[in-house]
Design a protein around this nucleic acid. Structure first.
Ligand SMILES: [Mn+2]
Ligand SMILES: [Mn+2]
Ligand SMILES: [Zn+2]
Ligand SMILES: [Zn+2]
Lengths: 137, 137
DNA sequence: TTGCAATTGATAATCAATCTCAATAGATTG
DNA sequence: CAATCTATTGAGATTGATTATCAATTGCAA
């Protein structure tokens, strides 16, 4: 049995703020690398490892959405607080938050039906957004 | 305009057969690394790069299913030929093939509704299968 | 202001996956 | 069957994203 760990004290640093802000400025998913480049280009001296850590924390706190695509971890500032999914533009990363109770129920039912416990599901829809489709002529 | 490429001539090698067979022996998803280890342990001298190539080919030919989990590519011999999804055991990799027309329609509708083209979707359900749950007491 | 643990970041280490390229071996032809 | 062509192989190098190190820094509470 584990002793109850004292709530990890989180310090406020300009680095964490910078990552949160940079993420909020975007409306699409970004990788840690991309965000780091963007911050650097904007004059910040923040380190890459710190960006990785800040994003992981934001995701753990539910303040950011996280998904993997082509083996890359992508993050996005989370608007709605509840469980939901995304419709993502392959080209520009723009995302639309989607909630679908029907899908939630389906996933739960499928797992139960086959005796699987602690079911979780990965549901993402990728496509080319209207703007990107237009830009591509 | 591209000239019509002559159908890539594929040669039959014991390596490709070995990979296909090893994959068929399993009923769950495996990574290239895992399959390579298994083959080696069974006495094969097949190279890792070859396993990667063989699995990629099988997936391209529709003979194997492919998905990514925690940044790892996993493969599985494909039973049914049409489009479908999976219920996968986090612990042992065992998988159940699932088709859900309702989800297909939902994904299509969501994309169309927001003006996204060429929509594709990733839908996987993960859980702990009954056997693994039992084994964990 | 002090004290100290949490945080940072340059750099090294991981690790899956891909690339190189010389050697090997299917398949085809005569 | 032998010669030829070229797809395939695989050991090792390389890439690229992510994580681990660890000494220096800094938030923050007392
Ligand atoms: Mn969901
Ligand atoms: Mn399948
Ligand atoms: Zn777009
Ligand atoms: Zn299992």
């Amino acid at each position: 049995m584990n002793a109850i760990e004292p709530a990890a004290a989180k310090r406020r640093t300009w680095q964490r703020d910078a990552v949160r802000d940079a993420l909020l400025e975007r409306d699409g998913f970004v990788s840690a690398q991309m965000l780091h480049s963007a911050l650097r280009d904007a004059g910040s001296t923040i380190g890459l490892a710190t960006v990785y850590r800040a994003l992981a924390d934001l995701a753990a706190d539910g303040a950011a959405d996280h998904l993997q695509h082509d083996g890359e971890s992508l993050y996005r500032a989370c608007g709605s607080s509840g469980h939901h999914h995304h419709l993502i533009c392959r080209s520009c990363g723009r995302a639309v938050e989607i909630s679908a109770d029907a899908v939630e129920a389906w996933a739960r039912a499928v797992a139960a039906e086959h005796g699987f416990r602690d079911a979780e599901h990965v549901v993402d829809v990728f496509g080319t957004c209207a703007d990107c489709a237009r830009a591509a002529d």
